[in-house]
Design a protein around this nucleic acid. Structure first.
Length: 474
RNA sequence: GGGCCGUUAGCUCAACUGGCAGAGCAGGGCACUCUUAAUGCCAAGGUUGGAGGUUCGAUUCCUCCACGGCCUACCA
C-alpha cells in the first residue's frame, strides 16, 4: 500500500472517531507517571506516542514513548470501556494517546500498564519510518528533524547535551560575576570579524542593515559604558560557503572582561572548557572521531611563528611561503593572495590537523588581528590566541586594542586594502566609543557549535544544529 | 564556485555485462490471551529524483536539470 492510501485510511479513522464524538485531536491530559513506573501502582496515567504494536490474539502489547523513555502497555478489549475500545480499534503506530490503568510485571519481567482507559490525543496521518533501522537518509533527517527526533534516540541526546553545555556555560560565567547581555543582530556596518554579511532592509527607516557577523564591537562598547564583565551567547551570520564545519548561522559565545587581557582569557577558557567537559563527559579525555583528546591541564602553548619554524619555514620569507602554499593547495591561482593568506593556508593544512590535545596558538601577526593589542615592544605581533582541539578551531581571544588612534589607523588601512568582493567601512561609532576610553580588557570568542561537535563526537556541524540550512526542495 | 559520489515502495536495502524491478519493516486480510525487531499464512503496494538521448529493449549507458553527501575553495 502506498503512502496516499495509508494517509486516506487514517483520515477515515479520524472521521470515524469524530462521528463517535471522540475528538481525535484532544486537549490537556494529566499524567501521573512517565517511563519510571513501579509494580502494583493503581490508576496511573501516562501519555505519549505509539511506537510499536504487537497484537496477540485478543490482546496486544504497545510501546508508548514519551520524552523520558518507553512504557509498555497491555491491552485487553474486555477490560476497556466502549469509547476506549473504539479508540483502540482505530489506533495506528505514530498516534499520540493518553492511557490510565494499573501497573504489573509481565512474565518476562517488564513493568507494564494494564490499560483500562485509552484516548487518542493526536491522530497521526502519516506512517513513521522503519522501526528497526530508523531514519537514515541525512537529507530527510535534517529537512524533517522532527522525524529524526522521533526515530533516532541518540539525536535527542545530542541536543540535550547542547542545552546542558549552554546552561553550564551560563552558570560558570554568571557565578564569576559576568553579566549576560544582548546586543543588536542587525548592524548598520558589519564588524568584529572578516566575513561577507547577509543584507536585510528596514522599510520604515529605508535603511539597509546587515545581520551581524560578530557581536564584538557592541560588547566592547558596553565595557566603555562601565560594565566590566559581560558575555553574550547567540547567533552570528556569515554569508559564506556551507561545509561540515560551517553553517551560515552559528552560535558564538563572546566574553569581555575589563582590566584583564589575553592571558586572563586563556585561563578562563581552560577553566570553562575543562569544567564543561568534566561535567558532560565525566573526565579529562574525550574521543572525537578517530582521536583521543586529553584535556589535562595545563594546555600546550605554542607561538604562531613557532608552528612555521617547526615546518622549517621562515614566515617572513615570502618566496618560500608562496612556494609551500602552492604545494599545499596545488593548481590554485595565488596571485590575489597576500602573504598572510598563504601562511593561513599552510597553517590550516599542515599545522592545524596535528593539534589534537588542546593547544593555544599564541601571538598572531597584527595584519590578521585588527582588533588586538600589540605585544609590548613588538608592534608586529599581538597578544592573541586561538585554541585548537582535535584539529578544530574552537576559540579566539586577545587583549583588546583600546587605543582609538591606532584602531582608527588600522581600520582605515583595512579599508584601503579591502578586497572588491568584501567592501569595508570604518565604524566611526566604535572609534568614538574608544575615544571616551575602553579599559584594558581581554575578549574571548568560543564557537559553541564546534564545542558541541567535540562533546558529542559529531563529524558535521549539521548534526548539532537542529535545523541546519538546506536548499528548499522545489 | 570546482571535482568525485549518491538519489529504486512511506522507511531500510537488493537487482550480474543493458533483458519481466525484489525483500524486510510499516499498511491491508486471516489465525493466535505474556509479547517486546512477536509469530505463521495470504494479498497488495513502483512514473527506479526530473527532462531528453542512444538502443529491439535503460534502474543500468550518455547529456542536461534538481536535491544531497564527501573533498576542495571562500569564511582571520
Amino acid at each position: 500500500m502506498g503512502q496516499e492510501e495509508i494517509y486516506h485510511q487514517r483520515l477515515e479513522k479520524r472521521e470515524l472517531l469524530q462521528k463517535q464524538r471522540l475528538e481525535p485531536y484532544g486537549r490537556a491530559f494529566k499524567r501521573s507517571v512517565t517511563a519510571e513506573i513501579s509494580e502494583g501502582q493503581k490508576g496511573v496515567s501516562a501519555a505519549g506516542r505509539i511506537m510499536a504494536f504487537r497484537r496477540h490474539g485478543r490482546t496486544a502489547f504497545l510501546d508508548l514513548r514519551d520524552d523520558s523513555g518507553k512504557i509498555q502497555l497491555y491491552l485487553k478489549p474486555e477490560t476497556l470501556d466502549a469509547a476506549s475500545v473504539f479508540c483502540y480499534e482505530n489506533l495506528d503506530i505514530g498516534d499520540i494517546i493518553g492511557v490510565r490503568g494499573d501497573t504489573f510485571r509481565t512474565r518476562t519481567g517488564e513493568l507494564t500498564i494494564a490499560v483500562q482507559f485509552l484516548t487518542i490525543l493526536a491522530k497521526s496521518l502519516r506512517p513513521l519510518p522503519e522501526k528497526w533501522h530508523g531514519l537514515k537518509d541525512v537529507e530527510t533527517r535534517f529537512r524533517y528533524r522532527e522525524l529524526d527526533l522521533i526515530m533516532n534516540r541518540e539525536v535527542k541526546d545530542v541536543f540535550r547535551k547542547r542545552s546542558r553545555l549552554l546552561q553550564l556555560t551560563r552558570e560558570f560565567l554568571t557565578s564569576r560575576g559576568f553579566l549576560e547581555v544582548e546586543t543588536p543582530m542587525m548592524h548598520p556596518i558589519p564588524g568584529g570579524a572578516e566575513a561577507r554579511p547577509f543584507i536585510t532592509h528596514h522599510n520604515a527607516l529605508n535603511l539597509d542593515l546587515y545581520l551581524r557577523i560578530a557581536p564584538e564591537l557592541y560588547l566592547k562598547r558596553l565595557l566603555v559604558g562601565g560594565f566590566e564583565k559581560v558575555f553574550e551567547i547567540n547567533r552570528s551570520f556569515r554569508n559564506e560557503g556551507i561545509s561540515p564545519l560551517h553553517n551560515p548561522e552559528f552560535t558564538m559565545l563572546e566574553v569581555y572582561e575589563a582590566f584583564s587581557d589575553c592571558s586572563g582569557m586563556m585561563e578562563l577558557t581552560e577553566e570553562l572548557i575543562s569544567s564543561c567537559v568534566k561535567e558532560l563527559s565525566g573526565g579529562v579525555e574525550i574521543s572525537y572521531q578517530n582521536s583521543v583528546v586529553n584535556l589535562a591541564r595545563p594546555w600546550k602553548r605554542v607561538k604562531w611563528v613557532e608552528t612555521f619554524a617547526q615546518l622549517g619555514l621562515n614566515w617572513q620569507d615570502e618566496p618560500a611561503v608562496r612556494q609551500m602554499a602552492r604545494t599545499v593547495s596545488p593548481g590554485e591561482d595565488d596571485s590575489g593572495k597576500s602573504l598572510f593568506d598563504c601562511l593561513d593556508a599552510i597553517f590550516k593544512k599542515l599545522v592545524q590537523p596535528g593539534l589534537i590535545d588542546p593547544t593555544f596558538v599564541i601571538e598572531y601577526p597584527r595584519q590578521v588581528s585588527p582588533l588586538a593589542k600589540s605585544l609590548p615592544g613588538n608592534l608586529e605581533m599581538t597578544e592573541r590566541f586561538e585554541l585548537f582541539l582535535a584539529g578544530l578551531e574552537v576559540a579566539n581571544a586577545y587583549s583588546e586594542l583600546n587605543d582609538p588612534v591606532e584602531q582608527k589607523e588600522r581600520f582605515e588601512e583595512e579599508v584601503k586594502t579591502q578586497r572588491p568582493d568584501r567592501p569595508k567601512e570604518v565604524d566611526y561609532d566604535y572609534i568614538t566609543a574608544l575615544e571616551y576610553g575602553l579599559p584594558p580588557a581581554g575578549g574571548l570568542g568560543i564557537g559553541i557549535d564546534r564545542l558541541v561537535m567535540l562533546l558529542t563526537d559529531s563529524s558535521s556541524i549539521r548534526e548539532v544544529i537542529l535545523f541546519p540550512l538546506l536548499r528548499p526542495k522545489s
